[in-house]
Nucleic acid binder design. Structure first.
Lengths: 122, 122
DNA sequence: CACTTCCTCAACCAATCGGTTGAATACGAC
DNA sequence: GTCGTATTCAACCGATTGGTTGAGGAAGTG
């Protein structure tokens, strides 16, 4: 297995699939076994098992053992890592946007202003 | 809600690549052309152009036209969508974790605690 | 007009992905 | 031990991905 891939790579890739996002949503409510997770989906149990493995390798879930069962548990840490990454740049660009709007509003005040293209807001 | 599923797919997939995350980080500072974006990377210009296209189809960036240049602009909206999705379940699982800790702290006080099987409470 | 710059399209290739089916493992019950 | 349940492993397949090279479009300059 290629272990060198970044954790963010795998975390984002893991959530790029609607089925896996569904599993995460389900696991946010409570831990569940693979069989329980597979129940709402019209795919094989092996497919869900693969999905859980992807989530596990992305650090999004952990699995313990309880007899034959392998209850899956959602971890907040990887979600936290992703959220932090996104918010860093989201805030940065929103901040930049706000400053640009300020500048435009300031310059457009007293003077006669040619049609000034502000943000392309629909 | 379901309309955004496809967009979430593409947004998460877009950020699953370290190069594209690098482009987003660069674009958070300021808009840039494809050539400028490609400069730090040791791949062809076409490869970066493809990456930008992926970001665009994920709704993460827009492109305008300025003579020959196609300046790329980072949009906060898609980042916001992803952040919102993640935080919903991140908070949910953290909340659940906190409640479990509370329960354990409360119950573990006076009594000696046998391994307590907590089944799915659905 | 030709020339240059910036960028995209098209074809191709190897690797990965999401799904399948079939076999194998791990555990508890009988 | 055998049986049943839960889960994973292995092999395969079609589609997608990230990269390449080569050609070409779009716009400003001499």
């Amino acid at each position: 297995m290629e272990q060198s891939a970044d954790l963010l790579d795998r975390a984002f890739a893991a959530l790029a699939d609607a089925t896996r996002r569904g599993l995460v949503a389900r696991l946010a409510v409570s831990d569940a076994t693979v069989s329980e997770l597979a129940e709402p989906y019209d795919v094989s149990l092996q497919a869900i098992s693969k999905h859980v493995k992807v989530l596990e390798e992305a650090g999004l879930v952990t699995r313990s053992r309880d007899a034959q069962r392998r209850p899956v548990h959602l971890k907040a840490e990887a979600l936290d890592l992703m959220s932090t990454w996104i918010d860093r740049y989201r805030i940065e660009v929103e901040e930049r946007h706000r400053r640009l709007d300020d500048l435009l509003a300031r310059t457009a005040g007293p003077e006669d202003q040619p049609p000034c293209r502000k943000k392309d807001q629909t």
